[in-house]
């Protein structure tokens, strides 16, 4: 049936009665749906500092910096909140049960100073005992140990870090091992130095 303008009028009157659709935002906080993809946040308990998220990030919003300070070093992972596109790839790629970096429901992200638009997380790094270069974050090594179980005893870097973490191996114990001829094999080593020590029969200390 042709009813020109009648439906519009009914809808208009309905609109007047129902009232505005506008949400009362500042007074009534907005809660997004559970699946909402908001600001990704690092989780201090789970993140192992492996940089898988940096690898997959399509917007290059995740970056890191390794800072070496004498015998200790730390890795700072940055998440730039202004370049982030909230795609959730970091969460999907996270090796720590997808919990190391997780999308939150946070959406109210306006800020004034762009130079401060980042979040960080710090991870302690393990250094090579010979050349002093960076091997991996301590938590990452521990994560590998946990994954591979007793197989980790084939690799001194892994089990030493693990034992140190458990408090079973202190410096005294390690010093006593060092008396042996091939003590360089039982050290926390970077990949390069491990290759060196495996291929050559050199003792790093004596040079023979």
């Amino acid at each position: 049936m042709k009813l020109p303008k009648i439906r519009e009028l009914i809808e208009a009157i309905k609109a007047l009665i129902v009232g505005p659709y506008t949400s009362k935002f500042p007074k009534k906080p907005h809660t997004p749906y559970k699946s909402f993809r908001g600001q990704p946040k690092f989780n201090e308990d789970y993140c192992v500092g492996c940089l898988a998220c940096e690898q997959v990030c399509p917007a290059k919003a995740i970056d890191h910096k390794d800072i070496k300070n004498g015998k200790t070093a730390k890795r700072i992972i940055y998440h730039y909140t202004d370049t982030c596109i909230f795609c959730g790839e970091c969460e999907a790629a996270c090796i720590a049960e997808h919990k190391g970096i997780k999308l939150t429901n946070e959406w109210d992200l306006a800020f004034f100073d762009r130079s401060k638009a980042f979040e960080t997380i710090e991870r302690e790094l393990v250094l090579c005992e010979i050349c002093g270069s960076i091997i991996a974050p301590k938590k990452h090594i521990l994560w590998i140990v946990e994954k591979i179980g007793e197989l980790s005893f084939s690799n001194p870097t892994l089990y030493q870090t693990r034992l140190k973490e458990l408090g079973l191996a202190d410096d005294n114990l390690i010093a006593s091992i060092k008396e042996n001829a091939r003590d360089d094999r039982i050290k926390t080593l970077c990949a390069h130095c491990r290759r060196q020590t495996t291929l050559t029969t050199k003792n790093s200390k004596t040079g023979g």
Binding site: A12, A15, L16, V18, G19, P20, Y21, T22
Partner: peptide, 11 residues
Amino acid sequence: KVTARVQYRKG
């Protein structure tokens, strides 16, 4: 205001 209310806006 009335225009806004007809259009489900606040006005």
